[in-house]
Simulated assay, not measured.
Amino acid sequence: MFSLRLCSKKPFASLTSLSSPSGLINRQNLIRARHLQPIESKCLFRRCYAQLPKKPISKPNLSAVEQAKQQAKVAAANVGSKHYDIAERLLIYHAGTGRITFLAMVKVTTLFLGAFFTFVVVPGYIKAEKPEWETVGVALCGLIPLIFVAYTTSPFVTHIYIHLPPAARTSRPVLERFIHSALPPSTELTLTTMSAIAKPRYSTMQAGHLRPSNRRFGIVNYVRDAEDAMAENETRKWYNLRAMSKFGVQEVRPQKKKVKGKKSKDLTEAWIWDALKDKIEKRAVVDSGKAA
């Protein structure tokens, strides 16, 4: 704006004085003109090299194939980067807070009940010299519920996590394409169950080692390859629990619609488990066809 104002003025308009004769130049106006000459040259310099503001270049609409290629290039360039838009481990299944809490309370309650009958009631019966059949019956009252609950609830899966490779963590579209098309059987999964004292147990395996099944009256609907479980047991010490090979993944009810203005606390990527479950079932059908 400053250069435009200076350039709009006429530096030699005041050389001729109104009081002097025509054609004569005032001495004071000459001195002023000497000072205005460099300013005029600067204005001309700025005008010559001034550039108009650049307009945004409109890019042509890319096809879906070209967009996929660009996303693949970005994913390949960001493989060595330490910053990713998606976490390395994603929660893809959650059995529900109500189910998990109720099951943990049942496990702890039956554990205390069995301990009470075994270490308090049975010694009292023995000390009172009760008949043997009564003493055995009291002991079974504490042990049978404990064994039944442990047998029926041990396969219950509370959480399922998927471990993503770096190439699938760059953006959301890349993750969706990886899950729906390029999900390899070597993708690692971590299934969480509960021990007899309601402590979490983690079982890490490949997705290709999991297949559907129907055992324990429908409680177990997924089993792990026996060879894979045996290989994991060889790496464990003798005092550690054996690797889990039977799992029960319950169906989760669809959530209600979100209320506007209310933040959702659910961080489960359930669509990944749905896609993975379909792939496991299709793989089982193909394997059974080959075996037949």
Rank of each mutant, 00 (worst) to 15 (best):
residue 42 K to W: 10
residue 184 P to Y: 11
residue 93 Y to P: 01
residue 107 K to A: 00
residue 187 T to C: 08
residue 4 L to W: 12
residue 38 P to W: 04
residue 81 S to C: 02
residue 212 P to S: 00
residue 208 G to V: 00
residue 70 Q to M: 10
residue 16 T to G: 13
residue 124 G to Q: 11
residue 145 P to K: 03
residue 27 R to I: 14
residue 187 T to A: 09
residue 288 S to D: 12
residue 81 S to I: 07
residue 214 N to D: 14
residue 97 T to M: 05
residue 115 A to I: 10
residue 160 I to Y: 05
residue 187 T to L: 04
residue 125 Y to G: 11
residue 167 A to R: 11
residue 233 N to F: 05
residue 169 R to F: 08
residue 281 E to M: 11
residue 163 H to T: 13
residue 16 T to Q: 15
residue 173 P to F: 11
residue 40 E to S: 15
residue 143 L to P: 04
residue 103 L to Y: 08
residue 278 D to I: 00
residue 83 H to M: 00
residue 7 C to L: 15
residue 13 A to L: 14
residue 162 I to D: 03
residue 26 N to K: 15
residue 20 S to A: 15
residue 277 K to W: 06
residue 171 S to F: 02
residue 274 D to L: 03
residue 15 L to H: 08
residue 108 V to E: 07
residue 35 H to C: 10
residue 81 S to D: 03
residue 290 K to G: 10
residue 87 A to K: 04
residue 203 S to G: 00
residue 2 F to C: 01
residue 263 K to L: 14
residue 21 P to N: 14
residue 137 G to W: 08
residue 175 L to M: 09
residue 241 L to G: 13
residue 289 G to A: 09
residue 127 K to Q: 11
residue 291 A to Y: 12
residue 122 V to G: 02
residue 161 Y to L: 06
residue 273 W to N: 07
residue 286 V to S: 12
residue 270 A to S: 15
residue 144 I to W: 12
residue 185 P to W: 10
residue 168 A to M: 09
residue 153 T to D: 02
residue 247 F to G: 03
residue 159 H to K: 05
residue 141 C to N: 06
residue 245 S to E: 05
residue 104 A to K: 06
residue 9 K to N: 08
residue 246 K to Q: 14
residue 73 K to T: 03
residue 76 A to G: 01
residue 223 V to A: 03
residue 31 I to W: 10
residue 222 Y to D: 06
residue 135 T to I: 13
residue 65 V to P: 01
residue 129 E to R: 09
residue 34 R to V: 12
residue 53 P to I: 11
residue 264 S to H: 01
residue 290 K to C: 11
residue 287 D to L: 15
residue 136 V to S: 00
residue 115 A to C: 10
